[in-house]
Simulated assay, not measured.
Amino acid sequence: MLNITKDKTKVLLQFNFFKTYTLKLVLIITVTLFVCACSGNNNSTEVPEEIEDDQILDEQTTPEEADESSYTLPEIDLNNWKVTLPVSENGRPIEVEPPEILNYANNEVLKPFMYNDSINGALVFYTYPGATTPNSSYSRTELREQMNPGSNSTNWTFKEGGRMKGTLSLDSISKDGDGDYHRTMVMQIHGRLTNEQRDLIGENDNNAPPMLKIYWQDGYIRVVTKALKDTSVSDTELLYTSAWEDGASHIFPDKVNFEKFSLEIKASEGKIEVVLNETESKIFESVHIDKWGVFENYFKAGNYLQSTDEDSYASVKYYKLDVVH
């Protein structure tokens, strides 16, 4: 007489040891008899559905395999980006370039400031007041475009054009003494002097002003462009940072708060367009942008905290980031 165990789970687990179709049918008959024996109270004679092979394989999936299948990585290619951190070495902020940046998940210097949120598929940029670049009083965990990986020397002009699109969210940010959120810059178009321009005006570096700055500010997205203080200056005089000031700005009316949103920057000769969530667009066209054509440029993206308060901080998540020229 066939001895049927009362532990249905044990019987089901025995399926893993049968591989041929004949043995599988025998096992199904056994389960059917078991169900009938255990269902005397309701006189049920329902036959269980046949268990498919892929269901058996699912039962054999290890916890490690299940965890790996739940990981989601950001859609960001870091081959053409370097990152600047709020910590210093030899008196200057640490920068990590390609190819080292590609291994950010295992880089002990990068881990506190640039890491994966694998649940939401984001690359997190965390920063606080710390090391600053020579031309700023604020610190950052921010990517800088490198068209030629590992080099800052190859850049683009507005005549050549460029487009950057990202999907991001403000994860967390501190508040000031009045209870208002601090602000952080999440995207830029930054200017750069060529070596010839640098030497012409006697500068000791290639820094030029940022033509476009995009802030997360009180839950809104604020865009600021640069303008010449005097539009009649010569092409040489406008190379000086002091020739420029903040100009036209725009705050998109739809509040993003801490939700995911998309931002796209389109730069072309004499024109900048910024698009929020693929629905709201702001176009900047002016003599100032025409004049800006003398500069080289590069894109920046990340978390550039606009606070020096001791306990301030910000965390920005990027889910996607793409650049086209």
Results as ranks from 00 to 15, higher is better:
P93D: 09
Y240D: 09
K300W: 04
D246F: 10
K111F: 02
V323E: 04
P48D: 12
F15G: 00
G191W: 04
V274L: 12
F125Y: 04
A267K: 05
Q55H: 07
D309W: 01
N80W: 00
V256Q: 10
K8C: 07
T32Q: 12
D54K: 14
S232L: 01
E97V: 04
P134A: 15
P129N: 09
T167V: 15
L73A: 09
A208H: 14
S139M: 05
Y304C: 13
N116C: 01
G91P: 15
D205P: 07
V11P: 01
D235T: 03
F258D: 06
G179A: 08
G40C: 11
Y298W: 03
S137Q: 15
S315G: 00
Y298M: 03
M185N: 12
T9D: 14
E280C: 00
K282M: 14
W81P: 07
T20A: 08
T84A: 11
G166L: 15
N79K: 10
N80I: 01
E108V: 12
E278G: 08
N257D: 13
F252A: 11
A37T: 11
E49T: 06
F113E: 02
Q55F: 10
N195D: 13
V11G: 07
Q55W: 05
R144W: 04
E264T: 15
E142R: 02
S262Y: 14
P74Y: 06
P210C: 14
K213G: 02
R222F: 08
F15H: 04
K320F: 06
R163V: 13
K260D: 02
T61S: 11
T72R: 10
K175F: 10
D199T: 09
K320T: 14
S137I: 15
Q217N: 11
E95R: 15
D180K: 10
K260R: 08
F252H: 11
R92G: 08
I56H: 07
L212Y: 15
K300T: 08
T167K: 14
N152F: 09
H190I: 02
W156C: 03
K6H: 14
S118Y: 10
T241M: 13
V316F: 04
V323K: 01
D218V: 00
D77Y: 05
S151C: 03
T231Q: 15
S169V: 02
P129G: 07
L276C: 01
R222V: 05
T141V: 03
A314Q: 02
S88F: 00
G179W: 01
N120E: 06
S172L: 00
Y138M: 01
L25G: 08
T45Q: 10
R222S: 05
W156S: 04
E273D: 14
V316C: 07
T127V: 06
V324D: 13
I29M: 05
V31N: 01
F261A: 04
K266F: 14
G219A: 07
N42Y: 00
W244T: 06
W156V: 10
